[in-house]
C-alpha cells in the first residue's frame, strides 16, 4: 500500500487540496440561499432549490439540449478525428508539417472560434451562405443561428471543428503504438484494407476510443464558451444547455444556490452515465482491472 500511496499522493494532494472545497461548497450551496455580499445573511433552505427544479420549465429544455449537444459533438468529433488520424498515420512528404497544421482548430482560442463561425454563418454576409447559394444548394441566405432548429446544430458544427484535432491526436498516438508487424501479417494473409481496419486496427484502438470519448463527453458537457458567444443559448432557449442555465442563474440572476443545484443535476446524470460506461469498459477487458 505504501508505493501506490506515494505515487498517488501528489495527484491526491492537488485534487483534495484544491478541488474538494469548491465542490463541497457547491453541494452546500444547493441547500442554502446565498447572500453573495453579506454571507452572514445566508440561510439554510433545505430542499427548496431541488423542489424548484420540478417547477423550472427551462431545465427540461436545457437537459434535452445538453444531450443533443454532447452526443452530436462527440460523435462527429470522433468520426472526423478518426478519419484524420488514419490519414495522418500514412506516410507522405511533409507529414510533420501537416500534422502540426492539423492542430490549428484546437489551438485557436475559443473566443475566436466563436467569432469566426458566427461570422461565417451570418445570415446577411456570411461565407457559408454565399458558398451554398453559389453552389446552387440554397436559393437564399439562411439565418443559421436565429432559427430554433438550426441554432444548436450550427454551434455543434463549430465545436466539432474545434475538437476534431483532439481525437486525431489521441487516436494517432494510439495508432502509433500498434506494432506494424500486425498490419504486415494481416496484409500477407491477403486481408482487404477494410477488413484489416475492422479486425486489427479498431479492436486495438478500442481502449483508447472508449477512454477519450468518455473524457470528451465530460469536457463537452461543461463546455459553454462557444454557445455563450454564438447564440447566448438562443433563440429563446433553443441552444441553452444545462451549465449555461446554471451560469445564468448564478451570475446573472445572482441565485447561486439554485445555480449550484442545476449544476448538481448534471453532475448526477453524468456520474451515472460514467458508471454505466465504466462497466461497459470493464466488460471490454482490461482498461480498469
Amino acid at each position: 500500500m505504501a508505493l501506490p500511496l506515494f505515487l498517488l499522493s501528489p495527484a491526491l494532494a492537488l485534487l483534495v487540496g484544491i478541488v474538494a472545497y469548491p465542490i463541497g461548497r457547491a453541494v452546500w450551496l444547493s441547500f442554502h440561499r446565498l447572500e453573495i455580499l453579506q454571507p452572514d445573511l445566508t440561510r439554510f433552505v433545505g430542499l427548496e432549490h431541488y423542489q424548484a427544479l420540478l417547477q423550472d420549465p427551462v431545465i427540461r429544455i436545457a437537459l434535452q439540449n445538453s444531450v443533443v449537444w454532447v452526443v452530436g459533438v462527440v460523435v462527429f468529433q470522433f468520426l472526423g478525428g478518426l478519419v484524420g488520424a488514419i490519414i495522418l498515420n500514412r506516410r507522405f512528404p511533409g507529414r510533420a508539417v501537416v500534422r502540426g497544421l492539423a492542430l490549428i482548430p484546437w489551438a485557436t482560442p475559443s473566443v475566436l472560434v466563436a467569432l469566426m463561425w458566427t461570422w461565417m454563418l451570418d445570415g446577411n454576409y456570411g461565407l457559408l451562405n454565399d458558398l451554398l447559394v453559389k453552389a446552387g444548394i440554397l436559393s437564399r441566405f439562411q439565418p443559421w443561428l436565429a432559427q430554433p432548429w438550426s441554432a444548436l446544430p450550427a454551434v455543434i458544427l463549430a465545436d466539432v471543428w474545434q475538437g476534431i484535432p483532439f481525437f486525431a491526436v489521441m487516436l494517432l498516438a494510439a495508432l502509433q503504438a500498434i506494432p506494424e508487424d500486425l498490419f504486415e501479417a494481416a496484409k500477407i494473409d491477403g486481408a482487404s484494407a477494410w477488413r484489416v481496419f475492422c479486425h486489427v486496427t479498431l479492436p486495438l484502438l478500442l481502449p483508447t476510443i472508449l477512454i477519450t470519448t468518455m473524457l470528451r463527453m465530460i469536457w463537452t458537457a461543461n463546455y459553454m464558451d462557444l454557445i455563450m458567444i454564438m447564440t447566448g443559448g438562443g433563440p429563446g432557449y433553443s441552444s441553452l444547455t444545462v451549465p449555461l442555465h446554471a451560469y445564468y442563474t448564478a451570475y446573472k440572476r445572482l441565485d447561486f444556490g439554485y445555480g449550484a443545484t442545476i449544476a448538481i443535476v448534471q453532475v448526477v446524470i453524468l456520474a451515472a452515465a460514467i458508471v454505466l460506461y465504466l462497466r461497459q469498459l470493464r466488460a471490454n477487458e482490461g482498461m480498469v482491472q
Binding site: L15, P22, I23, A26, N222, P243, Y247, A260, A271
Partner: peptide
Amino acid sequence: FGFLVTQLFPSVLLVLP
C-alpha cells in the same frame, strides 16, 4: 472514478471558492 468526479462541475461555478 473519484478523479473524474472532480471534473463534472462546470468550472464557472467553482471559480468563486
